[in-house]
Write a protein that binds this DNA or RNA. Structure first.
Lengths: 191, 191
DNA sequence: ACACCTTGTAAAGTTTTTTTCCAAAAAAGA
DNA sequence: TCTTTTTTGGAAAAAAACTTTACAAGGTGT
């Protein structure tokens, strides 16, 4: 592994830490601008600033999280979301025991207020962490109220107008995929 | 959208429900065997049986879940895992308040017993739902004890021997990706 | 001034994914 | 029975995505 010199780091060095090739690192960084200096590499501090600058230059999106079960609560607690210039304006649930509570700085509202809230606040993104059987109905509500993107954790194929972007996350499929590759690997090792 | 005829469904019909092309559906199904009949399509009941047969013909993997926070609890409650012929043999945590409890049929044990349990039970897969700062240490333990695959939810690049398969799930990155495409779409719509 | 690094980017190469195409199989109508 | 229609499975072609190679241009140190 190449060693880091004072304050600077080369694409080769970065690559070895990330498990990529030097060319990939350069290409990916270059996509957003010129952050390095030829013959030297990337100055760590500068690179960090530049990346943060690119990320925060992206316009802010405001979103709601719908369904405060275990998974929803986990996401509310997860700090990584703010990094993406994403702001959870409110969470929604149908359970009266949860409504009115606050997770961090996010308030839990009654799902009946969802449409009104989305319209009033100009919400563009919804994170769906509701049970599978309610997912389509909730998505329909959110889309009708004006949401443009959905991050869907329910194991259901949502049907939405094509101008709405859905990103599907199925934890079961991730696991199956891992197991599949494990089996492939052990099988080919035997044969 | 094509209509379904009694008991049978064509690849084109399946495809339209899944948002794929007919050819893709046929190719993907054919990968595991011949389930359809030319001129007719796939008999729904038969296809379902065949898919279940393929899935359960895959050898069973046993795994442990490490870190019973909100996310861990959500996964323990999620029934989709059993479908993949995957069995969570036990969960682990370091919090004495959680140790000894039972989620569904899964018992929560002390993380100190992790290595011993993995070896004793021949566990092959670990699901990591621990905080980022403990992820590498826990992964090291699991790998040393014999785990061959890791499903990692901590936003950390695990470093493991290359014979160990790691599947990384970063919910923050999923969200960023969604936002990125949303921005791309709205920008190109303007210009 | 010269030798040596290392970036950014274009071009080439590779891999993966998707689509197209068609022989063969099944059903339905003549 | 024979022909037409439908639809599969799989081969071959096409397209797309991803990686690597290659190198001019920009910088550093002697």
């Amino acid at each position: 592994m190449p060693k880091a010199s004072s304050g600077s780091i080369s694409s080769e060095n970065l690559a070895s830490h990330l498990g990529l090739s030097d060319a990939s690192v350069r290409r990916d960084l270059a996509y957003f601008g010129k952050f390095g200096t030829p013959g030297v590499g990337y100055k760590a501090e500068e690179l960090k600033e530049s990346i943060l600058a690119v990320m925060s230059s992206q316009c802010l999106y405001r979103g709601v999280l719908i369904g405060v079960g275990n998974l929803g609560a986990a996401l509310l607690a997860y700090k990584g979301l703010k990094l993406a210039n994403f702001d959870i304006a409110a969470a929604f649930d149908r359970d009266p025991k949860k409504i009115g509570k606050t997770y961090g700085s996010v308030k839990i509202l009654d799902v009946k207020e969802l449409a009104h809230f989305i319209q009033q606040e100009g919400i563009e993104v919804a994170i769906l962490t509701v049970p599978a059987q309610s997912a389509q109905a909730v998505a329909d509500m959110a889309v009708a109220a004006g949401v443009k993107g959905i991050l869907n954790f329910a194991p259901v194929n949502l049907s939405v107008p094509e101008e709405v972007l859905v990103s599907q996350i199925d934890l079961g499929i991730e696991l199956e995929s891992l197991l599949y590759f494990l089996r492939e690997r052990t099988h080919s090792a035997v044969s």
